[in-house]
Write a protein that binds this DNA or RNA. Structure first.
Lengths: 349, 349
DNA sequence: CCGCTTTGAGAAAACCTTTTCCCAAATGGT
DNA sequence: ACCATTTGGGAAAAGGTTTTCTCAAAGCGG
């Protein structure tokens, strides 16, 4: 049987305060504070004695008291509406990583697509005196269900539609698409098709536009992009459209897909038709969703949006805003990265 | 050109304080505080006047000052080492959802598998005086790279290995496996195979154990589970082992898979062999990872671990611990749920 | 030995809210 | 009219830290 003392509420003795350190070192709290912060003037010996005492007692300053005084809480809010998505998690981790080293902690605020929840979270943030807010979403071209426009604290938008005049960071989708198409060209592919998601997504147009641009810049014909859903199923169907017509010579020798799921569907459908990847047809996806990209056969070459970096940049941008550094408003696009696996073939020797 | 005044640091006027409300209403701060909190005694008219003033001025109490006084910060820390995983996100959202309604905010702490990062985050939490910590992971049978055992604040473990004597919440893997196998039995399947992940995972044994139990309870032979990787590739290979031998009558008529990726591999491999799902063979997965389960053909019946609920329960458990309610230490298992799609067939009429 | 500057350290205000205690006025009972 | 109680509201301390101001002692030039 465990004694009462042991099973009692976890709360042991309260944390040691600066006052106690000061008393133990035989100085005033003012002196103790200055000693620990490297401020004020005192003998090196006094300073060291206080520091040693603090160390011995395990003193850690109460962040709440500090925040109250400094008007700086060293916390920021992270708003997201992407609960299950694979986009927000790396992004969130990036923000958190960039900030933890600076002593800044991140409040996680999942607002779904619920106005009420958004309001609730934003008010909680403001009450807790966050120094700033990072707003992220699952779509670059949609707003979160909250109004952050008159907030008195800085806001940075990452991977979501920013308010006018605000700072926004997004991936450079057009640049990413260029990487893919240019890779195909470098590999000697010439009849490059594009299969993407619904026309209602801005990224679909950004990527399709770049696809067209690269091809025309190189004097090649750009087929009309095939738009559908973000699903494997649509990848299958698109293959039927592209490779259905008789006459092998009309077939594409490369397919640039709007995301990895479509690419997966395309590759599976091609295999079912006996068309081999990458020998007959090269395939490149988008998102570099590793768990999908690595499970396709062959493993999928894809465009990575560098979401963790995007998150880090967003965190740092917010921090400099908090520090009062003016930042140019507008949308900043961060480059994507080509991750080569085996679905697009090797360069001609 | 935007004027300097407009592009100046976002920080407008500071938030309105209780003192200002009191002054505007012509009372003392003490009275104002009591009016807003429903404490103390005063005329209904005074109370209402103060409330109205506060409303008009947009007063919101400074949470930092409240926390300092009440010794309760209304924040908790959420530790995770699952940055890219699909497990932690629903779990985290569940924790956050359960707590936001109670005015409690959640610090997101991504510790990867890095001791230093863990230490850093835990110290930041303690400095910020979190009321408690929820520790989550990507594996039920592994510890986070941090020591939370002597922390002076309550800790709840969710989907990760708890410290001895602590409160832990995990999914009931054995129960989930029972659901799957019993569903097969209900559908008239009798030769049920089990393909799962690496033997180094505790859940593999929990699920395999339940698989065996259900079959022997029903007087049926339990084949030795096939253990491999958590991948589609292993699903493929397992089908080769199960259906490679000649003699159709030795083949299973159902495969219970340790996760959805294996199940996906199994289904694809069966289709390639011309074995139809669910007519010839039923398949059930585990995790109910919707994006995979819905993309398989046919869509995959799977076991859902109810991670959002698990997160909610963890949040509430932590809260009651924070409130001083003693909780029975030990591991509590929360039930799984069978999500029926089309890969396991319909019940015999 | 005297006035001036430097040095070392403490007192107190400030941050914002809550809560306890206190006091004056009003009310009620006789 | 007097005492006891209730009512309405304020003063002040508390919570933990930082920072400004103050002040005594010591050092120093003449």
């Amino acid at each position: 049987m465990v004694s009462d003392a042991e099973s009692a509420p976890v709360s042991a003795k309260p944390p040691v305060t600066l006052r106690e350190v000061a008393a133990a070192a035989g100085v005033s709290v003012a002196t103790a504070s200055k000693a620990l912060n490297g401020q004020g003037r005192m003998t090196a010996e006094t300073r060291e004695r206080i520091r040693e005492t603090a160390r011995r007692l395990g003193f850690r300053p109460n962040s709440l008291a500090q925040s109250l005084l400094r008007k700086r809480s060293f916390t920021v809010g992270l708003l997201t509406n992407d609960t299950y998505g694979r986009f927000s998690l790396p992004l969130m981790a990036g923000v958190s990583d960039a900030l933890v080293d600076k002593g800044v902690s991140v409040f996680l605020c999942n607002v779904e697509d619920d106005q009420r929840l958004g309001q609730l979270h934003v008010e909680a943030m403001l009450d807790k005196r966050v120094d700033g807010i990072v707003a992220t979403g699952k779509r670059i071209d949609r707003h979160l269900p909250v109004d952050l426009s008159n907030l008195r604290i800085p806001v940075v938008y990452a991977f979501t539609q920013p308010d006018p005049g605000a700072v926004g960071l997004v991936s450079d989708d057009a640049g990413g698409a260029r990487l893919a198409v240019e890779q195909f060209l470098r590999l000697g592919r010439r009849r490059i098709a594009h299969v993407s998601g619904p026309a209602s997504f801005a990224v679909v147009h950004a990527r399709a536009g770049a696809y067209r641009d690269v091809l025309t810049e190189n004097g090649l014909p750009a087929a009309e992009p095939l738009l559908g859903a973000w699903s494997e199923g649509w990848g299958h169907d698109a293959v039927a459209k592209l490779f259905g017509k008789a006459g092998r010579e009309g077939w594409p020798d490369a397919v640039f897909c709007g995301n990895d799921q479509i690419a997966r569907g395309v590759i599976d459908a091609l295999r079912e038709r006996g068309i081999s990847v990458p020998e007959d047809v090269g395939v490149i996806g988008f998102d570099n969703w590793e768990i999908v990209a690595e499970a396709t056969r062959p493993p999928l070459t894809s465009i990575d949006m560098n979401l963790a970096s995007l998150g880090r940049e967003a965190g740092l941008a917010l921090l400099s805003l908090v520090d009062g550094q003016p930042a140019a408003p507008g949308i900043r696009k961060l480059p994507c990265r080509l991750v080569v696996r085996q679905s697009c073939g090797s360069p001609p020797q």
